[in-house]
Every structure is written in structure tokens, then in C-alpha cells.
Design a protein around this nucleic acid. Structure first.
Lengths: 133, 133
DNA sequence: TTTGCAATTGCAAATAATTGTATTATAATA
DNA sequence: TATTATAATACAATTATTTGCAATTGCAAA
């Protein structure tokens, strides 16, 4: 891997905007600097960044995959399938689990951004009250 | 939710073929019975089945999401990013982890098919020997 | 049987993501 | 500097998935 302009710009973008951006948002931002850049280039650049563990990719249930800079501390998410609310959980809550998976299976886990879907506290209450199937 | 022919046929198909099938494979199978069925109908039917926890969906890194009937015992997968090999792990290895997430966050986890990416034992050995970046 | 209503479906179009190929840029080396 | 090999890119085409809308269908009540 060599020093790619697109990789650099995307990485800086994700460093600035400390958020989950999808490929289209990234594409639109990067075109402000490199107007002729192609979407497939963005996808391939993101692939490289993910492969090199600079960036995490995850499906947050929004339709398009979202990308995020990996900072020192990983973090993970719980997405409520009812209200769409997103909770953040710390890596330490995941770490032990990953370690045991690695030990039991002699498998080095590289998944770095876990998204678990479910129902949050508030919606659990509402579901109990309401008339769900 | 009412009694949909397409849902029924897909569910029976996934009951017979106890495997991970992608939407195209399912579409091709179902067309043998319902020749006029549309791909979007298949996607929407699969969404319903997933939503009703009859079927699990997961990204195994093959390009297309794969669907599988949920049997009594869930199972999960470790996918090697190097050789593509797939290891299966039992739900009990995940259960404690999910329980602690649920307790700590007051969040009911409905993710039922976890796919973790990483490097398997054999490829770890090869990577150490070879010249990886 | 008929009717009303909401869920399901087909179709077409839009969006998201991937891939093949030819070209260009970069780094290493002769 | 010229040559070579390889990574990155643009472009086009393909595949995968989603969505809007109108037509159809299943179910329950009339």
C-alpha cells in the first residue's frame, strides 16, 4: 500500500467529522477537493482503510454502510429496531468475549465495530403496553 | 401479518435446504413454483421472515447477504478474511456475552446470527511466514 | 357471498455496492 | 535518467438491494 491521496483525504475527513458517514456522504465531501474522483475509487479506498484497520465499517440499519475512524479506543453500538436510537458500548465490554472466542477457536478476530440490533428499554415498555403481533 | 404464499414457500425452502442461501438462489428456487414472482417480493418476504425471527440474515463476506432458517439452536460464524473458511460457533459461547450486554444496557438483543471476521489458525501461521504488509 | 381494509405483490425506477479493464501515477531499481 | 513492476484511478458495466405506486389478494365482518 502506498500513499494514496484519496485515502489520505478520506482519513482526514473522518478524523475531523468524528461521526458515522456513508459512502455517498464521503464521496460528496471528497469531491469538493477532488472534483473528478469516482465513486468506485471511494469504495476501493474505504476498503483499503478498513483492511488496514484505520477505519471501521458497519451496517447500522440505515440502508448504507457507515464508516468511522478507528480511534485508540474502539466502541460499539446497540441499535434499537423500533425507535432507531443508538447506544454506545465500550470496547472493554466486548473484549473479554472476543478473547474467549479467540482462545476457544484459535481465531484472531479482526471485527472491530460490532453492531447489535434489538429493542431499547423505552420501546420494551411500549411494546408491552401496546398491541404488537 | 397474514398468510403469504411467498413467505410460506421461502420458509419451506430454507427448512429443506439447511444452508445459507442468498436472495438470488432463493429467487431462482421459488420461480420453479411461482414463475411470475418478483425479486423485490422475495426481498420483502425475507425481510418479514427476519423480522418475525423465522429466518436469520447475515453478511458472510460473499457479496450478498445470506439467509438461513432459525432452528431451535442458534449458531454463529467466524469467517477467515484470508482463506474464506467458515468456522461455526455455538450459541452458548455467545449467550453469556449477550446476557451481560442486555443487563448492562437494559437492551433486548435480537441479533441472532453473529458473523465475526478475522484470521484462522492456518492463515495466521502463513502470515507470520509470508511477507504481509 | 359481498365488502372494506390492510397486507402483499409486480413493476419500474432509484440507490448501493462491486467488478473488469485500460490508463495513469508512483516507487524501486537498473 | 530510463525501465519495470505494481498500486491507484476512471470509467463502464454489472450485481445487489430498496422504494414508490398501483394492482391484487387474504382476512374478517357484514
Amino acid at each position: 500500500m502506498r500513499n494514496s491521496s484519496v485515502d489520505q483525504i478520506i482519513f482526514e475527513l473522518l478524523s475531523k467529522e468524528h461521526a458515522h458517514l456513508n459512502s455517498l456522504q464521503i464521496y460528496n465531501e471528497i469531491r469538493k477537493i477532488l472534483p473528478a474522483v469516482n465513486q468506485s475509487t471511494v469504495y476501493r479506498s474505504l476498503d483499503r482503510l478498513v483492511k488496514n484497520r484505520k477505519v471501521s465499517v458497519s451496517d447500522m440499519g440505515t440502508g448504507a454502510s457507515v464508516y468511522e475512524k478507528i480511534t485508540d479506543g474502539y466502541h460499539h453500538h446497540l441499535v434499537c429496531q423500533s425507535c432507531g436510537n443508538v447506544l454506545t458500548i465500550e470496547h472493554q465490554d466486548i473484549e473479554k468475549f472476543f478473547n474467549s472466542i479467540e482462545t476457544n477457536n484459535q481465531f484472531k478476530v479482526y471485527t472491530n465495530h460490532l453492531v447489535l440490533f434489538g429493542i431499547c428499554k423505552d420501546c420494551q415498555i411500549n411494546e408491552t403496553n401496546g398491541t404488537d403481533s
